[in-house]
Design a protein around this nucleic acid. Structure first.
Lengths: 360, 360
DNA sequence: CGATAGACTGCAATCGATTGCAAAACGCTA
DNA sequence: TAGCGTTTTGCAATCGATTGCAGTCTATCG
């Protein structure tokens, strides 16, 4: 079917081994034969068979990226970055979708390792620590965006504490005192860290934490809707909502739309992670950018280094952080210092006589 | 490192060939040895090495899906469907991003074939017909969403003529007579077909085609913006715009927002292909659904059949159509039979925002 | 009881590359 | 020209499976 090394060797009247050495440039062949073989190979249209090569070398030139879904714009960006980077090095990216489901993740991991991938970048569910740990012995692995606490794998994380802090502080600086937070599950790194950033910002501003303003939930639009309703139904609803759970954003938008709540006039809205349409939305939605592009690039850097290091890459550093950045658009508004919400024209007034302060 | 067939054979005290036959279930081994070997293999945690197997069999259990990008929600859906389907058959999906760029497409195709993929579903750019045709001799290929006219490959298409017809007719039924169309490049199947559906619907309604209302352009948000401006700047602007170029939607939304044009009060908007946020958008955006899920499923069906047919799958049918469907939401409005636009070149409205009454 | 078909099993080749080892070719010097 | 050290090259094994062919074993039948 296709031209094999044997064909090339035959035409060049040399042995297969010589052909191999010449073409892979091991430097063990004379300049002349090397050039001659390169030429012949090109003329014949020879392309090495990665499968055959892989069998012998144990490599596949395949690098897998395992993410939860493709709906999340950050994952899209990351996939595109990883693909581009790898392609430049003539690796092929295996993009896999794990659905944030431990079982699927586990299955996929097994398949991938069977296929002898050369490296893996994974957004772990956090439920397959042992398996990941075991696999890490055979394949260089880098975790992305989430840490799997059961492992000590090299991990590239967004600086979520900082991002959440920046976002919250921004809202505070705009005069908001009652800031609702919708955040991810607390058994995920990002969920916990974003909450901590929120708390720190409020703390620095001397604003007590009001438990009723903080909602943590699963990563789904429906969660966003539910949490949003709860926030709006409070006797003293927030004047701003910080949606730090990316998947929840749509739900929040739906609820505010349903209730005819004008953003940012009635309610300021700040989201975590960008989506391509946020800037076209009306009003354009302000965000905390988690730096997906940088994250992906760093992850690739780390992975490549590991792949080259061939097992002895324990340089000590196990966690990398990529800075977050505030992107101001039009969904947050400065309010008078009363800190009262405009949502219910009824009564509500200043002072942080909020319920009680909370612990985490 | 990992358990090989040899190990299993050794433990079972049989030859490697027997082990192979027993485990692959060729029916050439006795019931007893088969069961025994299966058990031993399981106990030892044996997993066949796809690379080694692939070398011999010429198969890789890898099926590639080559799409233009991951931003397009249709592609996301398709990717997830394909992944799920393939996984159930223990194939691994290779998701590749071609960027609608012929060069990249060509490179990727080469790499994929090198890796001896067992099948390929591709959204062709249309510029690599010869290459695709050549590859089709080695690998089962199914085209998706677009046809490559230079080939006679089996192709699964959305019923774009019908979809565009449905959409246009819907607008006509709502009383619109001046309907702007923003459509994809005319050197693509979908671009041409959608235009034809538009023309047919207008024709049936006895509405003459006004060339100034039709804009075809590249698949990019910027195109949408440009075209939209042109439409709005007409001395007699349209009362409805049908955005049949998916990527252009964002641009159109931006322009209408910039100009404070209320949808659907001042302008009805109908889009082609869904995006997850369309239904949360305010107003929720009506669409013509191209049936991404069905398309993907059908493509997988066809591909699998070809893969099984092993070369003789020429059953004559080369083109499949998946029906389109109108999804009415809130971005299209009935207008008086005058068909005149409410948009006046000069008069820009001030507080247009909260004027809308939420449906549903 | 021996012959023979049929069911199992094992040997060895094969897929297409890479690579250790040894032989061959080459270049230099004496 | 012989001697010796370097390059270059080829042979053959190897990676982990599959598979054609031939040999072994069992069972059946005359």
């Amino acid at each position: 079917m296709s031209v094999t090394l044997k064909d090339v060797a035959q035409v060049a009247r040399v042995s297969v081994s010589t052909a191999s050495r010449a073409l892979t440039g091991t430097g063990l062949t004379s300049e002349r034969t090397q050039q001659r073989l390169t030429r012949i190979a090109r003329e014949l249209g020879y392309r090495p068979n990665p499968i055959a090569r892989g069998l012998k070398t144990g490599q596949s030139r395949l690098v897998a990226l395992l993410v939860h879904n493709l709906t999340n714009a950050s994952f899209q960006v990351m996939a595109e970055v990883v693909q581009a980077r790898l392609k430049a090095l003539s690796y092929q990216m295996l993009l896999c979708i794990g659905g944030d489901d431990p079982q699927q993740e586990s299955d996929t991991l097994t398949t991938l390792v069977d296929h002898r991938i050369d490296g893996l970048i994974v957004v772990p569910t956090g439920k397959n620590g042992p398996q990941l740990k075991a696999l890490a012995k055979d394949v260089p692995i880098v975790c992305l965006v989430r840490r799997d606490d059961a492992t000590d794998l090299e991990t590239v994380l967004a600086d979520d504490p900082q991002g959440a802090y920046l976002g919250t502080r921004h809202l505070i600086e705009l005069g908001h005192k009652r800031i609702g937070l919708i955040v991810g599950r607390q058994d995920t790194t990002s969920g916990r860290e974003r909450l901590s950033g929120y708390i720190r910002a409020l703390g620095e501003a001397g604003i007590p934490i009001d438990d009723t303003l903080v909602h943590a939930g699963h990563f789904e639009p429906e969660t966003g809707a539910t949490c949003c309703r709860k926030l709006l139904d409070l006797s003293r609803p927030p004047s701003a909502i910080f949606v730090a759970n990316h998947e929840a954003t749509l739900g929040v938008l739906r609820v505010t739309a349903e209730r005819n709540i004008a953003i940012p006039d009635d309610l300021s809205l700040l989201c975590y992670e960008d989506m391509p349409w946020f800037e076209w939305h009306r009003p354009a939605i302000s965000i905390v950018d988690n730096g997906a592009r940088d994250l992906a690039n760093l992850a690739v850097d780390r992975l490549l280094q590991r792949m080259e290091a061939k097992g002895n890459g324990n340089d000590g550093v196990r966690e990398y952080r990529v800075g977050a950045r505030l992107v101001q658009r039009d969904s947050c508004r400065r309010i008078e210092s009363t800190g009262s919400a405009k949502i219910k024209p009824s009564a509500s007034k200043s002072k942080s006589s909020a319920a009680k302060s909370a612990k985490v």
